[in-house]
Design a protein around this nucleic acid. Structure first.
Lengths: 228, 228
DNA sequence: TAAAAAAGTTAGTTATGACTAACAAATTAA
DNA sequence: TTAATTTGTTAGTCATAACTAACTTTTTTA
């Protein structure tokens, strides 16, 4: 690891691109990530992405060949993990200490993750007694930048009779998060798959003595660990 | 107050200029503030300031006539007070919960004060049980934007025999703040002026059974309330 | 009050990071 | 295997916000 990392004189935009690329590569486990895919994810034009990728290649955070797929260097990966650590610690703080709900934390954490202060984030971590998971269930990288991906599968991949535990939810949509809490689902809820309807792939589930029918789209955003 | 305030779609730079102008006008109690003075304070060129003042006039946050002095509108003032509220609440949080020292908080608070979330700052205020003063002694504006200036005089303005209480310190210099805590001065310390030396205006003071000689420059940055 | 100094303004340049439009390369489908 | 589509690149534009250099107005002082 070079000492370039400690200077960390990156702009907010540069950080956003590195984090986005990391999430496509690692979180979504994509075999390859292209320029336009990254542009899509960040909701900017392919031209903007192309431009930024050039800059990040020059700074040795990104690797790619002309017309080829994108990848991160060790340094690039390290910066992305730190951003994810900051994001998840702030989300945890907002939920556990400042009365924020699941669906309110994301936008504010997007801002807070760009605050530059090593001491701030490590002290925040200590203050909360080194939490392992963020409010959506995702694992929080530690101060050494050790990153683990939560073992999880989509609720939609289960079959009738399966029993599972809710381990995480996709935090990409405010409406989805609101819906999850409204029907009473929470992290660690035990869910039983009663029926998978072939017609529209909707799923009938039971949890906390409640029976609900959810759509395929909903079940794609709920991550579980199989119990039975 | 217009509803323009609630949109608050100002850039970091625009906010910095408004806050700086407010501090020159109100905190330093300047009779008039000019373009170059504001440039000096923000450590940017007069041309940059001139440019930004034009923009802020167009947005109706600043008032001034060509070649004339600068002033803030009600809206401009309101935005500045909110920034000061945010800055001081974050400083308080960093010192009281995250083990930051006096001299470490300023730079991080400069970043945090630009985070845009009404809920974040009001919940932080509640979490700390609505503190009245920041770690440097300054008053924290409340959620309604009510701003009070701490009644304070410079230690350097006192005479031999005067007794006073430390109410605030100027937070502009890290070295100054380090020095203050090193010699053992803290908020509410009772200070007795033993001698004012005509030659170099240095002052001999006594506090907590310690006797120290401090320079005029030092005493200009220490704010007190007279007791005797 | 005229000259000097200080304060304020304007014009033109630079860097960042968006954008569109046009074009080139790679992939997919007919 | 050619044609169509998707993907990636380049060139040129725009806004923000900094800068220097040159110039104008105002204020100070000799």
């Amino acid at each position: 690891m070079t000492n370039k990392l400690n200077l960390n004189n990156l702009t907010k935009s540069e950080e956003d691109y590195l984090k986005a690329l990391f999430q496509l590569l690692v979180e979504d486990n994509a075999a390859k990530v292209g320029n336009n895919q990254l542009a899509d994810y960040l909701k900017v034009s392919p031209a903007s992405t192309n431009n930024m990728v050039k800059k990040l290649k020059a700074k040795e955070y990104v690797i790619s060949e002309k017309y080829g797929k994108l990848d991160l260097t060790e340094d690039g990966r390290s910066i992305a993990v730190r951003l994810i650590r900051k994001h998840r610690l702030w989300e945890t703080f907002l939920c556990n200490y400042l009365n924020f709900t699941w669906d309110e934390v994301h936008d504010v954490a997007e801002q807070l993750e760009h605050i530059k202060s090593r001491k701030l984030i490590d002290e925040l971590d200590r203050f909360m007694d080194f939490p392992k998971n963020d409010p959506h269930g995702e694992l929080i990288p530690n101060a050494n930048g050790e990153y683990a991906v939560l073992p999880k599968i989509m609720l939609s991949s289960l079959s009738e009779g399966d029993v599972c535990k809710l381990v995480a939810v996709n935090d990409g949509s405010v409406n989805f998060l609101k819906y999850v809490s409204e029907i009473g689902l929470a992290l660690s809820s035990e869910i039983k798959v009663l029926e998978v309807r072939e017609f529209d792939k909707s799923i009938r589930i039971e949890f906390n003595d409640v029976i609900e029918t959810v759509t395929r789209k909903f079940a794609d955003n709920v991550f579980v660990k199989k119990v039975v």
